[in-house]
Design a protein around this nucleic acid. Structure first.
Lengths: 219, 219, 219, 219
DNA sequence: AATGAATGAGGGTTCATTCAT
DNA sequence: GATGAATGAACCCTCATTCAT
């Protein structure tokens, strides 16, 4: 249920000096992502990761101190892939409903592309406080951006002015991220969702969002 | 992120015959709930539970086979406390918006009352597949009930007929459960939410829900 | 590899007084035999035995002190069934070879009828010293009887006088008991013996025995 | 009651790479043998073995997965020491009775040299099916070799042609292995055999064997 | 930098045995 | 006599972490 890009929270020991060192570190991070996505955080043993990376157990500690730390590195690495627009500022002068739908779709697509990693983040966030923070920070960034969008629409008289934009954003942003989680993680894990296609999903969610804020009909 | 009552999923071995046995089993379940709420599922050791229950380590196995099983018993026990109304059928002839607000408030209050346990369920659901199912079943029950409510409003011409009631319900129900989770679990764990009071929360969420479905203003 | 009847080696606590008590004790012994034959001595849990006997765990200790003790009782009970003739004294004036064959067959048949119990005895004898003694005492009794038979044949000039009857008996008696063990226990457990029929087996073994002692041809 | 060499049955995980690793593995095997011979298989705790080997408990699992597996390694290691001739083929042109006596003596001597280990094997074979197989395979190899010897003697007209060489061999080979077991294991454990010396033992057993097959007198 | 063997704390689990009812 | 719940010692096994090479 992470909601967007956020700056790294953890610092790893010494930034590797040699080429070989940099290479090994890369391997470890890729291996960790592979292993985490396959078996989750808890069941991943460090030795699985080092084996996958083609190095020995001890080498792990040259670059990382804990499993948590390498997970942070994995999440960090995944940041760019997970960039998504949120609800863009309306200064982009498009029709608000079109903008909302586009950004909802973009969010869902980004989530889908990283669903397995999101599942792991969710697992970890419910285990380790430091990742709870990571998850929540991402959520907050997403909420803040959307809150700005809502506020601007309100200022332009295009959205319901009676709701607090922060609060409305946190509720509606949660709606979207929860949808993504249900759709791409929770239910997929059980193989049992009414498999609505992503287009319908994005369209419906965007409509509900726009209606909720009493945003006027698409012209 | 559980959303409602659901039937028990696990059977525990031989229900104790004697009074003493029943007593001990009760103690264990209460102790387990206490321990789980304090340290979570993963960090709970069986010996913590038996110590809390005032019995020896071996006694655990007289009543349960695994930590998962006693957790299931705890959840089972907590079922009644967590009953909540969902969006009641509109046959209850109240103003729809009032009904939605009341049931939203009821949901949030029920969730708040079991927040720590919900946090644990969320942790467990992301670890053990059998509890993923438990969580999802509860969510589904909640969604199904709300879907019926939405369909009835649509039939009476009081709600937007262009959305699929099932899909709309899964999105909006997710919005509510996610809100409850964020508000009472995720953020509380970090101590950092803009502490909106529950009334405002329920009111805003209900308004967004009603608007999303284009339900007419409170007369 | 037990070889014959032997007196009980263990004394059980108080000989049960009441009828009900006697009955329970019987049940326990029968149950123990059933369980031992099914899963062996090591894997038999006292609770398996009491369950099979239809009584509670605690009741066991009314009649026995240890698993070893009830096993001794089982063996004791099985004594009569396992009576077998050995090589009868030649005062029985039959043809020596016929006598040897008859008694070999009798031994093998008796062994076959108690094969599962013999397997357990063998297991136990290699675990618990007190049963090693039980097994060996039975073997000795068998050897002693056969030694007397050999000595008598020697005295009558019908068998090789150059061998020590005690030593010859221990070797040849071992041959028979080993054959029974291989045939009815060891290989059966693996399901892979060249399944010679018991007649051929007895006949061949008896011929080898008689030849070994240079006993004259059947007249 | 094992009867001869047999190929290894178990493979242990990753043969250690470093010298140090090989050394530790050796230590563990030697330690295991020591401990097994002292207290048997069942009473041997892994920690006894690692302590004896001078390493920590966890190290065991670097080289072996179970107590059964290290026992297999011990037996494997002991294979060469236990090579014994069986009844050599008569192509060796010696007097058959001399050959039989020599090989009987060789068998008994080999058995005596590994008596404690044989006792353990016998214990284990009556507990764990995989070792039952090990024991029986060894027995079969011994029987097969002796059967060939008997068949050759029959072909040369030097032995009773009326018995099936396979069956006769299984009976007589059993006689020898049973003798070895009784003499060096079962009775020694109780300290109560009429301590016949090995020469007499071998001589008598060989004579009985040869007589049983009606092999002509030593010229 | 990399190796991989060694460590050992820590938890789960079993089941013979006891004992209050 | 019978019950069956409670006990707790005993042992196995995992795996993150260290460190000599």
């Amino acid at each position: 249920m992470s909601d967007g890009p956020a700056p790294s929270m953890f610092t790893v020991p010494d930034p590797p000096v040699s080429v070989r060192g940099r290479r090994t570190r890369e391997n470890l991070i890729e291996a960790a992502r592979t292993v985490f996505e396959k078996v989750g955080f808890l069941d991943a043993r460090l030795i699985d990761i080092t084996t996958e990376a083609g190095c020995s157990a001890g080498t792990f500690y040259t670059y990382f101190e804990t499993k948590e730390q390498i997970f942070a590195a994995v999440m960090d690495r995944a940041r760019e892939e997970m960039l998504h627009p949120g609800v863009p500022h309306v200064t982009e002068r498009d029709d608000p409903r079109a903008v909302i739908e586009a950004s909802t779709r973009a969010y869902l697509e980004a989530y889908r592309g990283n669903a397995r990693l999101m599942a792991v983040l969710e697992q970890v966030a419910n285990i380790a406080p430091e990742f709870r923070r990571l998850r929540n920070d991402r959520a907050k960034a997403f909420i803040a951006r959307n809150a700005r969008g809502i506020a601007e629409l309100q200022e332009r008289g295009l959205a319901d002015r009676t709701v607090d934009p922060e609060l409305a954003s946190s509720i509606l942003s949660g709606m979207i991220s929860r949808l993504a989680f249900s759709y791409f993680v929770a239910d997929v894990q059980l193989g049992e969702f009414p498999r609505t296609d992503l287009d319908t999903l994005a369209e419906t969610a965007a409509r509900l969002w726009a209606n909720a804020l009493l945003i006027g009909e698409k012209s």
